[in-house]
């Protein structure tokens, strides 16, 4: 029995995979905007990340402080094995459901 993911959760988990070790708040929001065309506030990003953290799908580590951040450290997020498994299951479900429907779903350029 696999839990389903919300769509922002799914997008953020994908962004984490894409960003690798450089995944922190601003970078995640940028990925969502650039790749998914979805302007997301930092608040929403953090809210979702926190929820994912509680579900055990991501874990956070603190990075090093940088001057442009006013000397504050970054909080980096990574997928946990459970997160990968759930993301995989979730994407699988979409793949299975969308198989053979290619002509019915117009592709965005």
């Amino acid at each position: 029995m696999t839990a389903y993911l919300g769509d922002l959760e799914q997008l953020i988990l994908l962004a984490l995979l894409r960003l690798g070790p450089a995944a922190y708040g601003v970078a995640i929001a940028e990925q969502l905007a650039d790749r998914a065309g979805r302007e997301t506030s930092l608040g929403a990003v953090y809210k979702t990340l926190t929820r994912l953290e509680q579900k055990g799908y991501v874990r956070a580590t603190m990075g090093d402080p940088t001057p442009e951040r006013g000397g504050r450290r970054k909080r980096y997020y990574q997928l946990t094995p459970a997160g990968r498994k759930t993301l995989g299951a979730s994407l699988d479900a979409i793949r299975r459901l969308s198989a053979g429907l290619g002509r019915l779903i117009p592709e965005e350029s």
Binding site: Y24, G25, V26, L42, Y46, T50, M62, P65, T66, E68, R69, G70, R72, R73, K74, R75
Partner: peptide, 15 residues
């Protein structure tokens, strides 16, 4: 728990 990270992100965006 999030204060430092969020403030840092906001500061980065501000810069």
């Amino acid at each position: 728990t999030l204060r430092e990270a969020v403030l840092g992100d906001l500061a980065e965006a501000h810069a």
